[in-house]
């Protein structure tokens, strides 16, 4: 490669170099190299510590929250996009309100969920005002109840408009006559949705699904406000290990980050392979 080609690639290569450098340092520290304070114990102690039951539970909890929030976002986002696509040209501009949560920071969305769904929040107060419960505190717990529902709701609220945006971009290229053809053949709205719309927007669902899953799996902002403490989200655990605990635990924190990275990479690899196998022929369009 000549010098000019190398220079033209540098805008893309610089961020990658930074990421690789950071990843290299993380891997090194997870094995006890380049630590701020020397590590006692073996090279693999950081990884062995990850098998502790609370960390395994935390890992499973994070994956569950990410998966549930992504599935909810994909379902809601696709349905909303489908309804918007079906609107008359006159009404379509009004439907742009769906984008509002997109411009809110994640932490603001977390606060909205907190205000609406907490024990003393809007929903519980409304339940009390309607006479459904004796006191707001009697309202069924939605947040911090150990099942990650608050996190899932917050992620879904924030991620649904993103899915809608991605799906609408593909629906713009859907020939409405395909829907007419299906209708003439006697298809119900549900059949049209699943046979025509969903396969058409599948690339958007795959791309946004991967992005959102990996974000929800590793993000810190929403869990900082809404995460249960046990099991907690992995991002909170990593933060605690790095900033709240003994420096000697740095290899364990770094090992956790490495495992999270490997999990994300394996997730993408498996998904791409599965998607390619399922649709290798129909995509010759």
């Amino acid at each position: 490669m000549d010098r000019r080609a190398a220079l033209s690639l540098s805008p893309a290569a610089c961020p990658l170099a930074l990421v690789l450098a950071g990843l290299g340092l993380t891997v090194a520290q997870s094995f006890g190299f380049f630590l701020p304070v020397p590590a006692a114990g073996g090279r693999f102690d950081g990884y062995a510590a990850l098998l502790a039951p609370h960390l395994v539970a935390s890992f499973a909890f994070s994956a569950l929250v990410a998966l549930a929030s992504v599935l909810l976002s994909l379902a809601c986002g696709t349905l909303i996009a489908w309804r918007i696509w079906q609107l008359s040209p006159k009404l379509k501009p009004l439907a742009l309100v769906y984008k509002v949560p997109l411009i809110l920071p994640h932490i603001a969305v977390a606060f909205i969920v907190l205000i609406v769904f907490s024990g003393s929040g809007v929903l519980a107060s409304a339940g009390h005002a309607l006479g459904l419960v004796a006191t707001p505190a009697d309202f069924p717990a939605i947040l911090f109840s150990g099942n990650g529902l608050g996190l899932i709701l917050a992620y879904a609220l924030k991620e649904t408009p993103f899915v809608t945006l991605m799906v609408l971009a593909l629906l713009a290229r859907l020939d409405p006559r395909l829907v007419q053809a299906a209708r003439m053949l006697g298809a119900s709205g549900t059949r049209v949705f699943f046979t025509i719309a969903v396969p058409h927007v599948r690339p958007a669902l795959e791309a946004s699904g991967i992005i959102l899953f990996l974000y929800a799996f590793g993000a810190y902002d929403i869990p900082a406000l809404l995460s249960e403490s046990s099991p907690g989200m992995l991002s909170i655990t990593v933060f605690d290990l790095i900033f709240q605990r003994d420096l000697a635990l740095r290899p364990r924190a770094m090992a956790l980050l490495v495992v999270m990275f490997l999990f994300a990479a394996a997730f993408i690899w498996a998904y791409v392979r599965l998607a390619a196998r399922l649709s290798s022929r129909e995509r010759k369009l």
């Binding site: 006559r177 053809a181 299906a182 058409h200 129909e282 369009l285």
Partner: peptide, 10 residues
Amino acid sequence: FQDWLLFPHI
């Protein structure tokens, strides 16, 4: 239709 509009994903 003129361009047949077969359902491409099935």
